[in-house]
């Protein structure tokens, strides 16, 4: 190939980056524009910054509750799926279980199913079948944590499996010879070595749970509503609180952006079912 000057490429990528970033910037612009200025001529350049929408969101006890729910549900789900996924991977890696490859593939199919199809059956099961007297899992945080396992647990299993497989078997066998219990081997020998992989899985499952909307919108009413569903409550047919909506969006975006900077290179592998190593 001919040696070309790199500047056209830089220019091209500046343009692409602009196209990528501008919509996010626009979200920010709307969020710091007071509502009475919104309907004047849209302007790309910020005249002044008004944090009123943000203070309104933080000052709203309902939205604070939603934020808390989002935080608790996604953290609970991430910890639960990573723990279960780690145990499952250890079992798949170290034990000679019959049909374990079928089990592995079966867990993955759980993630490929379209969530819209499961809205109705999950709703019916949660309201009519999974109930003890008056208590149902509908609109509870623990219910949402368990429901999110359907897509996060398969993800955790297939991202963790190579991690666990990569820990040499000789290490835990040596520990067994020294008389350690199986539980002790997992927690004190295998777990410390798996930490980097576990951290990536924990972070990505956390983001997926945080970002989820559809299931949260149908399976919660008030008590366990998450921030993403709170966002859609501000879009009504009678009129939309644009500034508030933008501010909630920014709040939902921030944790994901922080996470993004940490695990950027693992995102592609995670989103492509591991078919492409990022």
């Amino acid at each position: 190939m001919k040696k070309k000057t790199p500047w056209p490429y830089v220019f091209f990528w500046v343009l692409i980056s602009f196209l990528t970033l501008f919509p996010i910037y626009w979200l920010f612009v709307i969020s710091v524009t007071p509502s009475f200025e919104l309907f004047s001529t849209p302007s790309v350049i910020l005249q002044h910054v008004d944090w009123q929408n943000y203070t309104e969101v933080i000052g709203n006890p309902t939205l604070r509750g939603y934020m808390m729910n989002s935080l608790l549900i996604s953290s609970g789900n991430a910890i639960l799926t990573t723990t279960f996924g780690f145990f499952a991977c250890y079992a798949l890696s170290r034990f000679n279980l019959s049909g374990k490859e079928s089990i592995f593939f079966w867990t993955i199919t759980n993630r490929m199913a379209p969530p819209a199809v499961f809205l109705l059956p999950l709703f019916l099961l949660l309201t009519k079948v999974y109930r003890i007297e008056g208590f149902t899992l509908l609109d509870t945080r623990i219910g949402m944590i368990l429901v999110y396992c359907t897509f996060n647990l398969p993800f955790a299993i297939w991202t963790l499996r190579p991690t666990v497989d990569g820990i040499p078997k000789e290490l835990d066998e040596a520990a067994f010879v020294d008389g350690a219990s199986p539980w002790k081997v997992i927690t004190e020998v295998v777990f410390p070595l798996c930490r980097p992989g576990l951290a990536v899985t924990l972070i990505l499952t956390w983001v997926f749970a945080w970002n989820e909307y559809l299931l949260a919108a149908t399976l919660t009413n008030f008590n366990a509503r998450t921030l993403t569903t709170g966002l859609s409550e501000y879009v009504t047919t009678t009129g939309t609180a644009w500034g508030i909506m933008a501010a909630i969006s920014i709040f939902t975006l921030i944790p994901a952006l922080i996470v993004f900077s940490v695990v950027q290179r693992h995102i592609v592998a995670g989103l492509t079912f591991g078919a492409v190593k990022g």
């Binding site: 980056s17 975006l253 994901a256 995102i267």
Partner: peptide
Amino acid sequence: HTLPLIIAPII
């Protein structure tokens, strides 16, 4: 360029 991938679909 990777940035949009991490943004929640609803956002």
